[in-house]
Design a protein around this nucleic acid. Structure first.
Length: 285
DNA sequence: ACTCCAAATTGCTATGCAAC
DNA sequence: GTTGCATAGCAATTTGGAGT
């Protein structure tokens, strides 16, 4: 029904309300382990943690785990024997579909949570979104989750240049929590990230740091504008962050200039950009 | 190994001012 | 009014670093 637009924001006929994260209290820290660094690699582990609960699923990959990834995650899998090991210990992996369903179920137990992770904006989120779409679970996921927050973006914004050696999760944990942890087991990763967040990030985070799960869909909708340099990347990001796609702007523009007012009022895009976007729509016809 | 973002650097244009 | 230079501002490009 109506919620189909979540699968493809270009299908919507409604201009979304300004993105609003009020009332979101629960946080789910999460981390993916994958077969490699590419965006098309398979998921081999989903780990997550809230204040009171933990989640962990190992996932059967369809492609081989790259050596570099195995070294880091300690996970190996043989298609021949169908067996998965984590540092020598045998584990029971499930199918991608089941792992995603279970994860959504875990998320549903929270009240419209935001999901948090380190560098997830450009790694974990694009990967899990593409897998969710593949399994036709993306719209359900969108209904379940309020948005996501990338702790690396917060760290870059809030931590002065010389206060941290670098922005790796492991370094930040060592520096601000004082713990050395064996990075790269999914569970330990979410554990240490939660500790880091609770100790030092809580007070730094603003609701402005939360992104819509439709962020990448929206950015994709702006690809033409970006390619033709009609509008700047930061402006697109600002809009996409709140789940506003090109289609939404077009609908607004078609109705009248006031349709874009809510965007302007919130100062999400400068007037100069609004003008160039409107000209773009006119030239399209 | 792959991909992406953002900071840093380089390159270019335009503007302002001084001298003629 | 014209020329030349210097600097500010913007655009394009390169580099570095983060995730498995």
């Amino acid at each position: 029904m109506e919620f189909n637009f979540q699968q493809d924001p270009e299908q919507t006929t409604e201009i979304p309300l300004p993105f609003n994260v009020d009332g979101t209290k629960c946080k789910v820290f999460f981390d993916l382990e994958t077969t490699g660094l590419g965006r098309n690699n398979d998921i081999i582990q989903i780990a997550a943690k809230t204040n009171s609960n933990s989640f962990n699923r190992y996932v059967i990959p369809r492609v081989d785990i790259q050596i570099e990834a195995s070294k880091i995650t300690g996970i190996t899998y043989s298609h021949g024997t169908n067996k998965m090991y984590v540092r020598g210990e045998i584990v029971e992996p499930v199918s991608l579909h089941k792992a995603l369903l279970d994860f959504i179920h875990f998320l549903k137990e929270q009240n419209q949570p935001i999901i948090l992770g380190h560098n997830i904006c450009n790694f974990d989120i694009p990967i899990i979104v593409s897998k969710l779409k593949e399994c036709n679970l993306f719209s359900t996921f969108c209904e379940t989750v309020k948005g996501f927050l990338d702790t690396m973006k917060v760290a870059r914004k809030c931590i002065p240049k010389n206060d941290a050696e670098n922005l790796k999760q492991q370094t930040l944990v060592k520096q601000f929590v004082g713990e050395n942890y064996s990075a790269n087991n999914g569970i330990e990763d979410v554990d240490s990230l939660k500790t880091l967040y609770d100790r030092t990030f809580t007070s730094l985070v603003k609701s402005d740091d939360v992104f819509s799960v439709l962020y990448h869909n929206c950015m994709e909708s702006y690809s033409n504008l970006l390619k033709n340099k009609i509008v700047s990347r930061p402006v697109c990001m600002q809009l996409a962050k709140d789940g506003i796609s090109l289609k939404h702007l077009k609908l607004a523009s078609v109705r009248d200039v006031n349709g874009l007012k809510f965007v302007l009022q919130d100062q999400k895009i400068p007037r100069k950009s609004v003008k160039s976007i409107q000209e773009y729509f006119q030239n399209e016809e």
